[in-house]
Nucleic acid binder design. Sequence first.
DNA 1: TTGTACGCGTTATCAA
DNA 2: TTGATAACGCGTACAA
Lengths: 329, 329
Amino acid sequence: MHVTIKDIAKEANVSYSTVSKALNNSPLVKEGTKQKILRVAENMGYEPNLAAKQLVRKKTEVIGLIWPTIERVVLATLVTNISKAFESSRYSMILSVDPIEMAMDTFKKFQVDGTIVFAESENRIPEDNIPLVAYGVSGKNEGTYPIIDANHEQAIQKAVHYLYDLGHRDIAYVGLLHTTDSLQNEKIEGYQKASRKLGLTEHSITTNGLDWFDGYLAVNDVLSLAKRPTAIIGGSYDISSGILRALHEKGISIPEEMSLISYDNIPQMATAETPLTCVGVPVDQLAEEIVNTIIQRIESDDTNVAKKLKPTLTERESTGTVPPQHRSN
Amino acid sequence: MHVTIKDIAKEANVSYSTVSKALNNSPLVKEGTKQKILRVAENMGYEPNLAAKQLVRKKTEVIGLIWPTIERVVLATLVTNISKAFESSRYSMILSVDPIEMAMDTFKKFQVDGTIVFAESENRIPEDNIPLVAYGVSGKNEGTYPIIDANHEQAIQKAVHYLYDLGHRDIAYVGLLHTTDSLQNEKIEGYQKASRKLGLTEHSITTNGLDWFDGYLAVNDVLSLAKRPTAIIGGSYDISSGILRALHEKGISIPEEMSLISYDNIPQMATAETPLTCVGVPVDQLAEEIVNTIIQRIESDDTNVAKKLKPTLTERESTGTVPPQHRSN
DNA sequence: TTGTACGCGTTATCAA
DNA sequence: TTGATAACGCGTACAA
């Protein structure tokens, strides 16, 4: 059977409440006895019973992450980072890949102190008086919970301006266009706004999906544009890696003949065939923000509003100045 | 505050022990009172407290899955399927992406009834007297826990025989060759054994990694082989989809000019550019086996040994008979 | 500084 | 068929 504090108490010749205090490092117990109790506990292989503790404390120090749509690499990276971010706190994290309502039930049973939700749709998330923060629910913030997200629009704008400063005047955007997915739409808007502001002609190419070969296929369209662009903005990691592949294949050198910049700021960008310049909120930063927000919300009951994180541009080898023969001005 | 069975008892004018029985659908309580109690509980929004239940029952009916290396799509699909498989049981599943020891600790605190481990390495897993089943730890079964895995070798053999029966005599295998990864090695062995048995020349092409562009690049090597193969076996989903892309691009029609069969039996195969014939244990089947094994182990304390699941060949549009001009015999 | 006793929300064993 | 009541393992006011 399992060792309990009563067993320890007997062994150490003290009452079990003293054991409890010692184990919780209370100042109300003499240093000597505390050490002794700790030693005995160690020797007996004592493991505290969370259920019992929880019953009286009403806290688990565990937070649950709901992630119904695994299978996207970018999100997987974020999860890994969030998990890492919790390591330096006193919380630990568990995960559920069940549909949101089901997952909430499981977590409620466990009485997690808080939940993080990766929403798949625009659906309002039912908040069950357990602190919650959502990630990636762009759009109206109707709930009472904070929503953390990257500022997609600003990210793409940043990309356009960056390329402009390098001398590029014909910049193509490759991404999923005619869609109801507001995340994608925000990116396009960023592209359009920046283009207008800088007086650039827009060259946007739509893909059929979000996978690498969608980006791959789109390159043909890019190259057959009336005015051939000198730079491409890829709408996501997968799309950009397809674009990269296609360019390599066609013998178009990067960045000499074509600059390429990708949305999504994840470490994988550095290990692509050609290390990719990218824009977006770095995952580790995103993770930290999410973790801090949920902890804050648990501990001080803050009712934070939506937070749009500022994207960063990370420069690598895939972008450069415009080749002389293409200069327009 | 939370509603407890005592609150319900007051409201329904019965003792709380009766409430407990009613809630647990005990036959020891009259149908009428049971219905009434259930109604009251519903109305008051009662939610059972797992911690309390657990304290006396010593069971959580939750099992934990440890998955330190998210970020591989095939595994993600498996996780989804496992989660689904649990839905028809009375268990639910939680997940940890922490390193194995850390995850075990979290789960121990929660007192999960069992754990499933997706091992990353050949490392022996520390079994802490809580039922455990491992997935994908090929090699010696030194632990006392069951190991579930697909029979990779047999799968590839099946693929070779299938292609042979369609008339193919020059079959290439594209995969990660010179490696210490025993999973990959088993596949190659399957290829070699089958080839020898059927008296075929071996054409194995090694990739540099396991990503799609590794498969993509390998196609050039395949096509420059002295004797051009009429069929290719791709070592994994990612590799095969790269091969597929390359073949399309070179205008090689599938399956007329080249048959392609892939390892990994996942639904994604059906939605590839060309629906792919594949071999491997279907994920849903794998998931079910894993779930059944852990449940069995929890409930009847079976000490199962390693189980290698028999692969299935799923025929789709990417394979066909050998084109006449290539027939050797 | 240490010990006693109660309560957390359930299940389970008896008695009624 | 129902109701008291004792656990389960722990934290904590309060008493000693």
